[in-house]
Nucleic acid binder design. Structure first.
Lengths: 93, 93
DNA sequence: TAAATCGGTTTATAATATAAACCATTGTCA
DNA sequence: TGACAATGGTTTATATTATAAACCGATTTA
């Protein structure tokens, strides 16, 4: 049985990736609302995804407020698809 | 976003459940070979599934050797199916 | 200007997964 | 026979992970 990418096999990170796969880009606040995660947890998991090269994180401003925008990378997309395929074997889909 | 049953959202436990869903019953040695898990890890995870009521564990003998046989329960079956459905939402399947 | 809010990050803790060490019984073969 | 390996596990210690709590600087609000 193939290994399930441990970076994706985490509820919150998977939720984030799932959102980013459909949305082209999303900011911190949006992800927080959608996933209902705490800010701290989200921050940590975003870092991990970013360190792995699965997403990019851009910190900018909107007026005077900071804004953190995330986007899935090609590598992240591949990893996600591979994860889905592996999972299908586990689930008999 | 719905929660993913944390008892199933674990690589080894998911692998075990996946096998048991297709096989009516399986013994410890078989599960160990199929999943390539260490005996200790498998033992712990089987206990958790059993404590949760997702599988039954029967210890018996074949000749003089012990034999531990596992089977998925109705509750386990339901949980697995629910898990699959929830996951589909994450993966857009 | 004090207090609350926004948008986060850092850090401490709880939970989880995993492997290493161990145990009892059985087989092996010198 | 008696030492040693193998089988079929369990228990326990450790590494990893997830999570929330505490914190921080800037901004708005009263």
């Amino acid at each position: 049985m193939k290994e399930l990418d441990p970076l994706l096999h985490s509820q919150l990170r998977l939720a984030v990736m799932s959102i980013l796969m459909n949305v082209d880009q999303a900011d911190f606040v949006f992800l927080k609302e959608k996933t209902e995660a705490t800010a701290g947890n989200l921050s940590v998991q975003l870092d991990k995804l970013s360190t792995a090269g699965y997403i990019t994180i851009e910190k900018g401003f909107v007026g005077k407020k900071t804004r953190t925008v995330c986007q899935v990378t090609a590598q992240g997309r591949n990893a996600f698809e591979e994860y889905v395929n592996t999972l299908k074997e586990y689930l008999n889909l």
